[in-house]
Each structure stands twice: as structure tokens, then as C-alpha cells.
């Protein structure tokens, strides 16, 4: 990974100097595996069975990004996920049943059927629901950070987006404002190299999203987004900066979207060699290998993690599928405060 910008810190995939504690390392595997298996069921089963309608977007191959960066957030911290950050919802405590009910348009879903798929949030978990308009969450995150700063609260906000979203004016306005106000925000880009069918070189004339940081006066850091420990390391540094009043950081996670843009897109425009290249860098397989080599888990133990999340998902699907749909008249409620 190279960068044209001398001010951008590039960390190679070598072991970081500090490792997270063992429990965190094992939790990382659990959450990545849960993300993948849950999204597999959503995209390849429930959607194809017609049990989920509308659009479905998954983050296959990108699981390390939300997991590595959210795993050490505190309950009071705030997360603004984007559309491929299932791990953020899971780590912040949204239940698998609530998520599935959301996708299946049930009353028990996070938005009670008002919205679909990962367009969901919950103040209880300090999870801010994103709107489809890409990049709109970037200035919002700046404002969340601003409120922490005004009230001298020791809290940080993590804000996620893709490479394509960084072309939006709102992204630039939000990043600039966050930098000017030195607010405690960690901006995390999943650079999966495609925005729908549009490859990176059609999206921006700079090589890296992180190159943009310098223009706004905040540090940019590039990490291997398929290495959960690297992501964790970068997020930890940025969170510490934010907590100590040094302002926002832009982290760019290099990764790849191992599916089409959405469930109906076969990604025929992506050269198959790219899929192959990134398949060999699968974040879950890599983390399993790391844990096994360190003696933190056995092969059987890792397989059991996968089997375990699938049992959890089975149970949650059972419940969510029997959950009620909203009453039609619910359409009219909650446009304004109702007490």
C-alpha cells in the first residue's frame, strides 16, 4: 500500500506493537463470523425466499472494519454506521432478532417497519440510523462530537462511509467542520474500491481517500481493512486522540466488496481476478489462522464459533418470522412527538 501524500501514515500489515487482550481477539472472531453468517442468511436465503423485500446490501469481505473499530467503544460512545457495517449493530447490542425483524419488515424490527434493511438505529445503543443519502452522516457526526465537546463529556463518535460517499459535498463540509472544531470524531472509510459499478479511479483523482485528510487539516491513516487487528490498532489510536481532545481522524480501510452492490447485482463489471485476490485475504480466515497459530483457539473451536452463531441465527429467525407485521394504520403514527 503506497500513498502519494507524505503526511499520510501508512502502516504495513506486520503485527502491531500492541495487541488487544485475548478476550477481545476472540470476540472479534465471534462478531465477524456472526456478521457474515447473518448476512449470508439475509442475502442468500431470506431474500431469495421472498421473505425480505426491497433492497439488500451486505458487507461480505469487509467484516473486519466495523468489528475492529467498534469492539472497544464504550456504551456512552456513539456510532453512525453506513450500509455495510452490520458488525456495528451487533457489537453495540442490537439483537439478532431485532435485526432480522427489521429486514423482514416486522413491527418488532428496529424501525417498526417504517424503514428496511440496515436503515436502522437505536438511541438506547447510541446507534444513529443512516439515511440513504450517502455522506449525510458525516456532518451529523461532527455535531455529535461538538455536543460532547460543549458539555465536556468523555465520549467519542465513530462515523462510517464508503469510498463513493467521499465524493459528496456533505462529506467535505462535514470533515472540514469537524477538523476546524477539533471534535472527537473518528471517520472510518471502507474503501472497497467500487461504488456500485464505479471503480475508484472514476470516483476520485487522488489515490487514497486518506490523502484528502491533509487538505482539511486532520490526520489520515491507511490500514489493511481485511486485518481486524490492524483496524483495531488504527481505531484505538484515533479514539485515544479524540478522547484526549486532539480532534478527528480519518481512517481509510483498504478492502474489497466480495459481492455485487446489492442482492440483485451480479457484479459482472468486476474482474474475477480481483475477487480471487481478495478471497485469499479473507478477514475471517486470516483472523482464525492468527488465533490458531497463537494457540488461542483450535480449528475445532473456530468451527464451533461458526456453528454457534448459526444456532443463534436459527433461533432468531424462528422468532422474527413469527413476529407480527405492523398494523396498516401505524403508518400515520410518530411523524411528530406523541408523548
Amino acid at each position: 500500500m503506497k500513498t502519494l501524500n507524505p503526511n499520510v501514515v501508512v502502516r504495513e500489515t506486520a503485527q502491531p506493537a500492541v495487541l488487544p487482550p485475548e478476550k477481545t481477539l476472540l470476540d472479534m472472531l465471534y462478531y465477524m463470523q456472526m456478521t457474515r453468517e447473518l448476512e449470508f442468511r439475509i442475502e442468500r436465503k431470506l431474500y431469495r425466499q421472498g421473505k425480505i423485500v426491497g433492497g439488500v446490501y451486505v458487507g461480505r469481505g469487509q467484516e473486519a472494519i466495523a468489528v475492529g473499530s467498534c469492539i472497544d467503544t464504550l456504551a456512552a460512545d456513539v456510532v453512525c454506521p453506513s450500509h455495510r457495517d452490520m458488525g456495528a449493530f451487533l457489537i453495540r447490542g442490537m439483537s439478532v432478532r431485532t435485526i432480522l425483524a427489521q429486514y423482514m419488515a416486522r413491527k418488532t424490527g428496529a424501525t417498526r417497519g417504517r424503514d428496511g434493511n440496515m436503515h436502522m438505529g437505536d438511541m438506547k445503543h447510541n446507534l444513529i440510523a443512516f439515511v440513504s443519502m450517502l455522506g449525510d452522516n458525516v456532518p451529523v457526526a461532527a455535531g455529535i462530537g461538538m455536543s460532547f465537546k460543549m458539555r465536556h463529556e468523555d465520549r467519542v463518535v465513530l462515523c462510517f462511509f464508503g469510498d463513493g460517499a467521499t465524493s459528496r459535498g456533505d462529506w467535505h463540509e462535514g470533515i472540514n467542520m469537524a477538523a476546524v472544531m477539533k471534535v472527537p470524531v473518528v471517520y472510518i472509510c471502507n474503501n472497497n474500491q467500487y461504488a456500485y459499478s464505479t471503480p475508484l479511479e472514476r470516483q476520485m483523482a487522488v489515490e487514497n481517500v486518506a490523502d484528502r485528510a491533509e487538505a482539511y487539516g486532520l490526520p489520515g491513516e491507511i490500514v489493511d481493512g481485511n486485518n481486524v487487528i490492524d483496524v483495531w490498532g488504527a481505531a484505538t489510536r484515533a479514539i485515544n486522540r479524540a478522547r484526549s481532545g486532539q480532534g478527528p481522524t480519518l481512517i481509510e480501510c483498504k478492502t474489497f466488496r466480495m459481492t455485487g452492490h446489492s442482492a440483485h447485482d451480479d457484479a459482472g463489471y468486476v474482474p474475477s481476478a480481483l475477487f480471487q485476490y481478495w478471497e485469499e485475504r479473507d478477514p475471517i480466515a486470516r483472523h482464525e489462522k492468527f488465533l490458531i497459530e497463537r494457540g488461542l483457539i483450535t480449528r475445532e473451536g473456530a468451527d464451533e464459533v461458526k456453528a454457534g452463531v448459526n444456532r443463534e441465527i436459527d433461533a432468531a429467525i424462528q422468532i422474527a418470522e413469527n413476529d407480527p407485521f405492523p398494523e396498516p394504520e401505524d403508518c400515520l403514527k410518530d411523524v411528530y412527538y406523541e408523548g
Binding site: 417497519g113 417504517r114 405492523p326 396498516p328 394504520e329 411523524v335
Partner: peptide
Amino acid sequence: APNTPVPYSPPLEEFF
């Protein structure tokens, strides 16, 4: 349509 956003869930959208 009523004065609400366009809801997602089929029974809500049908109502809308």
C-alpha cells in the same frame, strides 16, 4: 397519500 414518509413494510406502504 397521507402526510407521512413513505414507509417500507408492505402493510404500511399499502396503507400509504
